[in-house]
Design a protein around this nucleic acid. Structure first.
Length: 194
DNA sequence: TAGTTGATCGTCT
DNA sequence: GACGATCAACTAA
C-alpha cells in the first residue's frame, strides 16, 4: 500500500473534483500507541458562499474559521450537543469550501476503533457515519485546524475508484439546497451509511 | 422495517 | 431562545 501523503496541490482544486477523488483514499490517524487507517467510501461537498447548507454560507465566524484556510486542513465541528464531524478543507485560502467525511471502511486498527465505539458494536457500524468515524478514530475539537500534511492525521493514496463505481445523491441531514447532488459514495460498498 | 424521539450544548439569531 | 452537516433506542405493525 502506497503511503505517500497527498500533496497540497491535491486539495487546491475545485471542491467537487476533490470530493470525488477522495473516494478510495486512505485516512491515516496516528495516536500515541497505534496507527488507524480507514478507506474513504462516502463524502459530501459544501461549497461555502454558493451553498445555503454550508456553515460558511454567511461568511467567516469563530466556528467556521478553518473552512477559510488553505486547502489540506481539517475542519472539525461539534454538533447536536454530543457529536463531532470532520471535513477536509479545499481550494485556495479565503474560499470557505470543504468536504465532509461521511464514512470509512476500516483498514487497520479495528481493535482500537472498537474500544472507542464500545465493544458491543457490529463491525459494519464502526465508521458508517460522520460522527461515528470521528469517535472511532478519536477525532475531536483538538484536531480542528490540523494540517493534513502533518504527522498526526493525513491522507494517502489508496486505490483509484473508476468513475463508474462512484454514485451521487442529495446530501443527508440538511434541509436547504437538497437539489444539489453533492454526496458521493462508492457503489455497493457495505460501509456506506444506511 | 419504518417512523419517532430523547440526548445535550455551542453557535448564531 | 431555537436549532443543528447525528445517533441509538424505542415503538408499532
Amino acid at each position: 500500500m502506497a503511503m505517500n501523503k497527498l500533496p497540497r496541490s491535491f486539495y487546491i482544486r475545485p471542491t467537487l473534483t476533490v470530493a470525488k477523488n477522495l473516494l478510495g483514499k486512505s485516512l491515516v490517524r496516528k495516536t500515541h500507541r497505534t496507527t488507524l487507517i480507514g478507506k474513504i467510501v462516502e463524502v459530501e461537498a459544501y461549497l461555502g458562499d454558493q451553498d445555503p447548507a454550508s456553515h460558511a454560507y454567511r461568511g467567516k465566524t469563530k466556528r467556521n474559521d478553518v473552512m477559510f484556510w488553505e486547502g489540506g486542513h481539517l475542519y472539525v465541528y461539534f454538533t447536536y450537543g454530543m457529536h463531532y464531524c470532520a471535513n477536509v478543507v479545499t481550494g485556495p485560502p479565503n474560499v470557505g469550501h470543504a468536504v465532509l467525511l461521511r464514512a470509512l471502511e476500516p483498514i487497520d486498527g479495528m481493535d482500537f476503533m472498537k474500544a472507542q465505539r464500545g465493544s458491543q458494536i457490529k463491525d459494519q457500524q464502526l465508521t458508517d457515519g460522520p460522527a461515528k468515524l470521528c469517535e472511532a478514530l478519536a477525532i475531536d475539537a483538538r484536531d480542528n485546524g490540523a494540517d493534513l500534511l502533518g504527522e498526526t492525521i493525513f491522507i494517502t493514496e489508496g486505490e483509484n475508484i473508476p468513475r463508474s463505481q462512484i454514485l451521487s445523491s442529495s446530501r443527508i441531514g440538511i434541509t436547504r439546497a437538497i437539489a444539489h447532488r453533492w454526496r458521493f459514495y462508492i457503489r455497493d460498498n457495505p460501509w456506506v451509511s444506511r
